[in-house]
Nucleic acid binder design. Structure first.
Lengths: 113, 113
DNA sequence: CCTTTGATTAAGAAATAACTTAATTACCTA
DNA sequence: TAGGTAATTAAGTTATTTCTTAATCAAAGG
C-alpha cells in the first residue's frame, strides 16, 4: 500500500499507467513518450513493478510492460472504503488506528464558542 | 491531482486522514498521536490542506481540522475511472495522452515469437 | 500586563528521490 | 563471432522532502 501510493505520487508514473491502460508497450516505446533518459524511465518502471502496478515479460530482446489493474483498483478502492465509508464498517487502517488511539494528554478543546 | 497523490504518498498523512474520518480534531490532538514533533505534524497538515483533503477552522486558541471527503473520493475515483475504466469512455489524463501520443521512432517489436 | 498554552513560521541538517552519463548484460543477425 | 539494438545496472550529482530546534504569533487568564 505504501509502495502503491508512493508510485502514484509521480506524474510520470501515472502517465505510464495511463499509456499502459490502452496497450501493452515495450520499455523503449514507453521511454520514447517522455523527454527524460531511458534509464530514468527504467527506474520509474521498476518503482511501478515493485508496487505491483505493472508486470513485465521479456520476449526476445524486448521487455513488454502491461498494467496490473487489480492491484490499483483494490488498493485505491480499499483505501477509499477505509477513510470514506458509505456505511461505516471500520476497516484496516482506520480500524487499527481507532483501536489504538491514545487519548492525548491535552486540555479539552472548547466545544464551539 | 498532483497535490492529492503527493499528499497521499506519506503514511503519516494517510493516518491523519484516517483519524479525521472518525472525528474532527485539533492540531494538538493530532500531533499527540504521533511521535514526531508538533511543527512536523503542522507541516503535514498544510500539505493536506493545500491538497484540499482537509479544512481547518480556528476557534479560540485551537485550530480544528476536518476531513474533506469529496476531494479524496472524486480524485481517486476519477483516476480509477481514467486508468481502469469498466466501459472505456477515455477521460482526462489518458484521453489527452492518447490524443497526443507520438508514435515512437522505434523498430516494431516482435509480436510474440 | 505578564505568563501560559496552542499553533505556525523560520532556518538549517539529514535522509530520499530523481536524473544524468557511462558501463554492462542479453539477444539477435549478418 | 563481431556489431548493433534493447534494456538495465552502476555511480555520482542535484533537487526535494522531512525532520528538528528556536523563534514568533495569537488567544486566554491570573
Amino acid at each position: 500500500m505504501q509502495r502503491v501510493f508512493e508510485a502514484l505520487s509521480s506524474s510520470i508514473r501515472r502517465q505510464i499507467l495511463a499509456y499502459l491502460s490502452h496497450a501493452e508497450l515495450t520499455a523503449g516505446e514507453i521511454a520514447a513518450r517522455f523527454s527524460i533518459s531511458k534509464p530514468a524511465v527504467s527506474q520509474h518502471l521498476s518503482v511501478l513493478e515493485n508496487a505491483g502496478l505493472v508486470a513485465s515479460e521479456k520476449r526476445g530482446q524486448y521487455v513488454h510492460y502491461r498494467l496490473v489493474e487489480d492491484n490499483l483498483v483494490n488498493t485505491l478502492n480499499g483505501y477509499l472504503q477505509d477513510v470514506c465509508p458509505v456505511s461505516r464498517p471500520l476497516k484496516s487502517e482506520s480500524a487499527s488506528i481507532a483501536a489504538s488511539a491514545p487519548r492525548p494528554p491535552e486540555d479539552q478543546p472548547p466545544a464551539s464558542t
